[in-house]
Amino acid sequence: MASDNNLVDCMSEAANYQMPQSLRRLFATLLVYCNPANPKELWQTFEYPMSEDFLLIPNIQTDNIRILVLNDINNILHSLGHNINEFTLISNNNFSFSTSSTIMQQPTDIHLEQQQNAYNVILSRIFLNKPGAFFVDGPGGTGKTYLYRALLATVRSKGFIALATATSGVAASVLPGGRTAHSHFKLPIDIHDNHGCNITKQSSLASLIRDAKLIVWDEVSMARKKLIETFDLLL
């Protein structure tokens, strides 16, 4: 069992530079693997920084924001083989998340329209065989992962190669066939100016990357700048 003081220090440091969605992933990971003595206190301490993206939703109430944050943490815990009711984060330990869909009803139509536009634009570029790079941005719960999964499924269903990668292992685990960027593209962990990817031009991995019609990199904004530059050089 890790000291709760160490977990607080870990969350405090991450809150200085990580986006709320990544902070929620870290929080869920700490719950599962570090077994805090007082998870409720850890939740109360960092509820606000883990909620900041949901604060952008128009006309949403504070209680509804809490439900959305807990729901997202619960989804992450599910991907790790756990459930939020195993931890005492709130007074009602058997918390029901069935109301979250109602809370999100107002922005759902907007998000679906934005997802559809992104889906159409990206697929159009792919099937016209034109290169392009797209950055998908939005608060947690707006369906970015759903969009990524739809793009991957569509491209693969046409017999093309689509690679799914992410900056963190947790994010990679929710993408079909997902792997971390370090693993997928042989990126060095401790990267410097003169480093490149450990891939030869004649290797099967190089052929796979050349043949790929789509590469999805989730949480790319969490990666170091040099890592992106090295990947760009690889391409």
Rank of each mutant, 00 (worst) to 15 (best):
T108R: 14
L23N: 00
S183C: 08
Y119N: 04
N194Y: 07
F185C: 09
A37S: 14
L7S: 08
P139V: 09
F160R: 07
T200L: 08
R224F: 13
S221A: 14
P107T: 08
F135M: 15
M222Y: 04
Y146S: 11
D4Q: 10
L26P: 00
L235R: 10
G140M: 03
W217Q: 05
Q105L: 15
N5V: 14
V8C: 13
T180P: 02
F87K: 07
H195W: 02
Q105V: 13
T145H: 01
H82A: 13
S207W: 03
N6V: 02
N94L: 11
G178K: 00
K158G: 11
L234H: 03
S221T: 11
P188F: 05
A133F: 15
I110Y: 14
R125W: 00
N16E: 10
Y33M: 08
N94P: 02
I199D: 04
D137C: 15
V155W: 00
L56S: 11
E86N: 13
V220P: 00
S22M: 02
G177S: 10
G140H: 02
C34H: 13
N74S: 15
I189K: 06
I209N: 05
F185T: 03
I126H: 03
F134G: 14
E229F: 07
H192M: 06
L26A: 02
L7Y: 02
P39V: 10
G178R: 04
R125V: 09
T165S: 06
K201D: 03
D137Q: 14
L112D: 11
V121M: 10
A133W: 12
I122L: 11
F46I: 11
M104S: 11
D193C: 01
D9N: 08
P20T: 07
N59A: 10
G140C: 13
N93Y: 06
S173F: 02
N71R: 10
R66E: 03
N16V: 05
W43Q: 07
T154M: 03
Q106V: 12
L235M: 15
Q106K: 15
E229N: 11
V170F: 03
S12E: 06
T200K: 11
W43V: 06
L208A: 09
S207K: 09
Q114L: 12
D4G: 12
T167I: 09
C10D: 06
V155S: 06
P36V: 08
H192G: 04
Y119E: 09
N74F: 04
G178A: 09
T142L: 03
A181K: 00
V121L: 08
S3P: 04
T62W: 05
A118V: 04
F97S: 10
A15Y: 00
Q114N: 13
V170E: 05
D9S: 12
L89G: 01
L42H: 01
L227W: 02
D53N: 05
N35Y: 12
F54L: 01
L151S: 03
V216R: 01
S168L: 08
V174A: 06
N93F: 08
T145Y: 01
T154L: 02
V8H: 10
N120W: 01
